[in-house]
Simulated scan of single mutants.
Amino acid sequence: MPEAAIRTDDLGIRFRRNRRARRSFKDLFSTARRRNRPGEFWALRGLSIDVRPGEAIGVVGRNGQGKSTLLKLVAGVLIPDEGSVTVSGGVAPLIEITGGFVDDLTVRDNVYLTAGLHGMTRAQVDAKFEEIIGFADIGDFLDTPYKHLSSGMKVRIAFAVIAQLDEPILLVDEVLAVGDKAFREKCYRRIEELLAGGRTLFFVSHNERDLRRFCTRGLYLDKGALVLDAGIDEVLDRYNADYGI
C-alpha cells in the first residue's frame, strides 16, 4: 500500500476569541494544554484521516467549521496545538492566493518573486514565464504595479504562477470565486489536467457542482469535528439533509 499523501492523527488547533484572552508564556509549555481556557475555542479537534496519493478530496461544511483551517495546517501555514499532520511531498497552495504579492512591484517582478518563494529557480521561471503570462492573459499589464490590477486580474496571475509548481499535492480554497466564468473554466481544466497527472487534491468549496466534478471522496466538518468521511455524493447528500438544502 502506498504511503499516505496526507495523514492527520488526532489533529487539533485552537484560537483566541479576542485579544484579551492571551496565552501566557507558561501556557505554551504546559502539559495540560488540552483544557479549554477562557476566551479560547477549538477550531479543529480530533481529526484523523489518511489521504492516498492521487485522491481528490472535497471538504464541506458551513462557514467557520474548520475547512480552511485544515488546509492551512496541511500547508504548514498553521501549527497544531495537539496531534500531528504529515505530508508526503510538497504542496501547491491555492489558499489566500494573492498573499505574498507586493503592491508596488510590477506584475513581472511579482511573478519572479512569488515563484521564487515557492521554490522555483530563476531559470525555471524563465522557462515557464511565457506560459504563466499566457495563462493569465494579462500581457499588456506586465510592467504595471500590482496594486493597480483588478481583483480578478490578481487572481489570474496568482493562479497562473501556483499552477506551474511541480508539487504532488494541490490545495484549493474557494480562490476562484472572483474570477470571470471563462477564466474559472480555464482554471478548472488545468486542475483536471493536474488530477489526470496523478496529483492529490484537497478542495474546499460551497459549490456542489464543482465538488462533484472534481472529487470522489468528501470530508464533512461541523464545529471543528469530522462528521462524515465517505464518497463525495454521500457526504453532500448528508450535508444537504442536515441543513435542509
Rank of each mutant, 00 (worst) to 15 (best):
L201R: 09
I57T: 02
R16L: 14
L73Q: 01
R20C: 04
A56Y: 12
G54A: 12
P168M: 13
C187Y: 06
F183A: 01
V87N: 05
N63S: 15
G134W: 02
T200M: 09
L176S: 05
G54F: 09
K67D: 06
R16T: 14
G198D: 10
G139K: 14
E185F: 08
F25E: 08
L71K: 04
G99H: 03
D140I: 06
L78N: 04
L11H: 02
L195P: 05
T8Q: 05
H118N: 09
L142N: 10
G152N: 04
A56G: 07
A115C: 04
I138L: 14
G66F: 00
L211H: 11
L78H: 09
D233P: 07
V51G: 00
D10H: 15
Y239P: 07
V51S: 04
M120D: 09
V161Q: 07
T121I: 12
P168T: 13
K26M: 12
R52V: 13
I162R: 09
V125E: 06
R34L: 00
V235L: 07
T121W: 07
L226Y: 08
G231K: 06
I138F: 08
R52G: 03
L219K: 00
K67G: 07
E96K: 08
E55F: 12
D143V: 03
D109F: 11
Y239R: 05
G198R: 09
D81N: 15
D210L: 12
A43L: 09
I57Q: 02
L73S: 01
L11K: 07
E193C: 00
P38G: 06
Y146F: 15
N36G: 04
Q65N: 13
F15C: 05
C187W: 06
A75F: 01
G139Y: 07
V59E: 02
D9C: 13
A56I: 00
Y188E: 07
G99N: 11
L149V: 11
S24G: 15
A21T: 10
T121M: 04
I57G: 06
H206N: 13
L94G: 10
K186C: 01
D166L: 14
K181T: 14
P38K: 05
D173R: 14
I245A: 10
N63C: 12
V227D: 00
E185H: 03
Y146L: 11
N63E: 13
